[in-house]
Design a protein around this nucleic acid. Structure first.
Lengths: 190, 190
DNA sequence: TTGATGACTGGATTTCTCATTCGGTCAGTT
DNA sequence: AACTGACCGAATGAGAAATCCAGTCATCAA
């Protein structure tokens, strides 16, 4: 083959979805950026949604890698969990495609986007649940439902970082780590 | 006076807002149900929004009374907190006006409704924060920011009852009480 | 004279119509 | 056989016209 057309398409689509979101990206546009006939895209992907899924799945892999990189074996489980969650939320906050996706989820509610956002949430929860499962096995924490715990941890994290900021003063990284430790690990009881 | 027109208006407005929501309730409709001229409403309330606020504020008072009724002095603080939060969320789930409000908040996003929903949330948080503050004074729980804690407790409760149900099997009252106790009071650490 | 009223107004919203856009196909080209 | 882009029609958007409704105020009844 002369050039890797599939790669060109993926790059073009990533660029376009990140820049304009799902709805505002047209297949003509992707074809043009990729220097490829529109029909060629359909030899690799059945439809726009499948192309989108490929791009999002790539991003999820990238995100999980970043989260893994945040882990430092020198630190305790709690500290690492904090770092991981923080990195995941940072990724959500900084990554162009994520930003566009959440915007589109809120404002336009494109069904394909709602679906993908759900997939991203599930990927995050599975990722955390995996870490929790290991922590239970290694007796770092009490026995509990890993999925439910992961779900709760994430929600609590989002509450501390995003929701609380919306109504009161934002918290810095250290304060969040402290609160996280207080509420979920030490517990409120004396 | 022959009849208490203000009372008639409040009753009519409560009925209409509960049945049709804010947007779909017309001042003509309220006037008709109350058997009152439309202009009369404007002698008591400056505009539709003020009338709405009166109705919502009445509901908040009712809700707080119900939550207080749920408290049983024989039980521990944790158990009572659980009962209170549970009752608050039950009220939210059962009360016709609440249901309509949350629906309208999600689907139509009427600004006046968004504002009122926020006021309701704030009322709930203040209510819980008050209980927390007392619990700290009486040394039932660790020292912590009462507002932030109330906020987190409520969010966590909603997560356990509403959000988790959406993606997995719903939890019953006892399971919630148990999880609530595990996560927030005992903590995950061994 | 005063509290009550409902016809009236105009800005906002909805509905209808027509024009445009874009996902997906396929006949033709290389 | 791989690739292309003109073409199709369903979906969406823009614009105009019709309708709705919050809020006013001239009028009325007591």
């Amino acid at each position: 083959m002369s050039v890797n057309r599939k790669k060109l398409i993926i790059e073009a689509a990533t660029k376009s979805f990140s820049l304009f979101g799902y709805k505002a990206t047209t297949m003509d546009q992707v074809a043009k950026i990729a220097n490829v006939g529109k029909g060629t895209i359909y030899t690799f992907y059945a439809n726009k949604e499948e192309l989108f899924k490929e791009i999002v799945d790539n991003m999820i892999v990238e995100m999980e890698q970043e989260a893994d990189d945040a882990i430092n074996p020198e630190l305790t489980f709690t500290e690492n969990l904090h770092l991981t969650l923080y990195r995941l939320l940072e990724f959500r906050r900084e990554h162009q495609l994520m930003i566009k996706l959440f915007q589109e989820e809120q404002e336009i509610r494109t069904p394909a986007v709602l679906e993908m956002v759900e997939e991203i949430e599930n990927a995050i929860i599975s990722f955390i649940a995996q870490k929790i499962k290991i922590a239970i096995q290694k007796k770092y924490i009490k026995d509990c439902d890993p999925e439910l715990t992961a779900f709760l941890l994430l929600k609590m994290y989002i509450t501390l970082i995003v929701d609380w900021e919306r109504i009161r003063k934002p918290l810095n990284k250290e304060e969040i780590a402290e609160l996280f430790d207080l509420y979920l690990f030490k517990g409120l009881s004396l």
